[in-house]
Design a protein around this nucleic acid. Structure first.
Lengths: 339, 339
DNA sequence: CTGAAAGCGCTAACAT
DNA sequence: ATGTTAGCGCTTTCAG
């Protein structure tokens, strides 16, 4: 089972030093690739390491060097495919720069988010990227503002935290104008809860595009949801379908998951998409192009969003005093068959 | 470099001790909730902590206590919704037991998986749950077998690593028998690459169910893919659709993402589901019930899978010598409209 | 080129 | 009840 009751890897640098017949300093030098070690010595050390199966205790190293080379990414819900492409972008630049990226699911809960920020405070991670709702971020804005983190997708430009995202107001306007261009005048909005900044911005974009066209929306067409589940979208569609006398002919959902649920709900209510009701979504997640009819939606540059966020963070890590800008990336309307 | 440039939170336990006029031991005692501290003393310490904004350096604490209370979960691709429910199960039991769970995306790459295992070796995490392909796990089986980890969904019963999963052979058989029961005799199999154990097991389940019914499958109906992308399923559907003289009337895909792609591809080829071709998937991800037609699929108990994996790991952490069993959880065929 | 020694921030005996 | 002290395993001056 085991040596004589010590688990195999209780070997420390001094054990290695001893069997190699050198000092711990020398072992440390070869461990870190320092050049000032004579070849024979280095080889002795390497041999001792190999023979013992020694592994650096990163905890000790991190304590000494005061860095962990770990980055955290916090998402409100990693069940939402929207985040995966972003996270992959973050991961790839982190990796290229010698960092590990670890993902945390906060469930959009301030308490949980806070606990992950504690990993930062406790020096167990060097920095973080937060995709949580702006409201959640705000909950710890003051106390966390000194911490090395950046906001992605959701951000408060006034918070003094570096961020990257898109112009949601404009993007929502583009979606609505596309619907307008197809002759729709009765356009519903299916939005997420008020915790999300993007929700407020897209709602404004929707409203502004409508009023610019001289159209006034029926309040009954404006539905606020507290989740982005498919099921929530489905339920919203039923609500809309029941508006007998004044049913909208189009709906703009602020998330593809919602939009997909809406299409399903419409189908359940016997309404055909896009003939009777057109639907446009937001994000352009992978499955959006797979469903029937393929979803017209506003594509976010997900991978670039992630890469940019990671680069901003890295920059901030290199120079804590650097002015890190907020950046907005371009979106793009993907016209498919649902609208 | 620093000294005069110290960032605000360079405060250590001894600073606190000093301003509180006590020893570091006492500060440590109140930090850890030990009872043998007089109330007035405790209050002095608490005040000093609050005044300074002091935060425990977890790195130092971890080094001293030799545990990090961090758990790692490695997935081959967190873009696949199948994993999110499992991960959520893991997360919740980890949290209940005072552990943080952090997610790693290995991209099914042995090199990356290895680097995450290094976090374990370097004592930066206490344990891990691995959902990677069995082949990837195997790549480091020997060297990693001493490490505290468990396998989830993908596992090699002979590897000596605790695991949890389902009976893939049986589950695939159930799917195929359902198709058989509907009168299908020409049933295609769309499988993932050979790296996945579940792929081999489900292929066998498929074959066995078929031969038990006295049916021999045309080799052209057996398509192996090297990804689970929607697009791959779509492409496979086209291949199948082109089998003019001997086109299958049903397809069993080993993943819902594949099945959804297949349905889309079939539609593109002008074939109606389920009338002309029936489709059954595997996993029962959230979107499976949303598409048209709703997908018939084999549901895995995803959340329980995750919870069980976490419990096995925790058990192993508590007692490294405990015999931790392999466990198989029940699956369930969800009959919807696609087959 | 190599070693001795200090110390990162904390916890836990061991004293008092 | 509180303080003193010895490390956890490592990196890094500072000497030689």
């Amino acid at each position: 089972m085991s040596e004589s009751f010590r688990i195999p890897d209780e070997i420390s640098i001094s054990d290695v030093a001893q069997t190699a017949g050198v000092s711990v300093a020398t072992v440390s030098r070869v461990l870190n690739g320092h050049t000032n070690v004579r070849e024979p010595t280095r080889e002795k050390v390497l041999a001792a390491i190999a023979a013992s199966g020694y592994r650096v205790n990163e905890l000790a190293r991190n304590l000494r060097t005061a860095e962990s080379r770990l980055l955290l990414t916090m998402v409100p819900d990693f069940g939402n495919p929207f985040y995966s492409a972003i996270v992959r972008g973050i991961d790839s630049v982190a990796r290229q720069n010698g960092y590990f990226m670890l993902l945390c699911d906060t469930g959009a809960d301030p308490g949980r988010e806070r606990s992950y920020f504690d990993l930062l405070r406790g020096r167990r991670a060097d920095g973080a990227i937060c995709l949580d709702p702006a409201a959640v971020q705000k909950a710890l804005a003051e106390e966390a503002s000194a911490l090395p983190w950046v906001a992605c997708c959701e951000f408060d430009p006034a918070a003094g935290v570096p961020y990257v995202g898109i112009d949601n107001h404009q993007a929502a306007g583009d979606a609505v104008r596309h619907l307008l261009g197809r002759g729709h005048k009765k356009i519903a909005l299916i939005n997420s809860g008020h915790g999300y900044l993007y929700g407020r911005q897209r709602a404004e974009g929707y409203r502004d595009a409508l009023s610019a066209a001289g159209i006034e929306a029926d309040p009954a067409w404006h539905i606020d949801l507290d989740t982005l589940d498919y099921a929530a979208g489905e339920a919203a569609a039923h609500t809309l379908a029941c508006l007998q006398n004044n049913r909208p002919t189009a709906v703009f959902a602020v998330s593809d998951t919602l939009a997909i649920g809406v299409i399903n709900g419409l189908r359940g209510a016997g309404l055909r998409v896009p003939d009777e009701v057109a639907v446009v979504g937001f994000d352009d997640i992978a499955v959006a192009a797979q469903i029937d009819p393929p979803l017209t939606t506003v594509a976010q540059p997900m991978r670039e969003l992630g890469e940019t966020a990671a680069n901003l963070l890295l920059k901030r890590l290199r120079d804590p005093h650097a002015e890190v800008p907020g950046v907005l990336l371009p979106h793009k309307l993907m016209i498919r068959r649902s609208a």
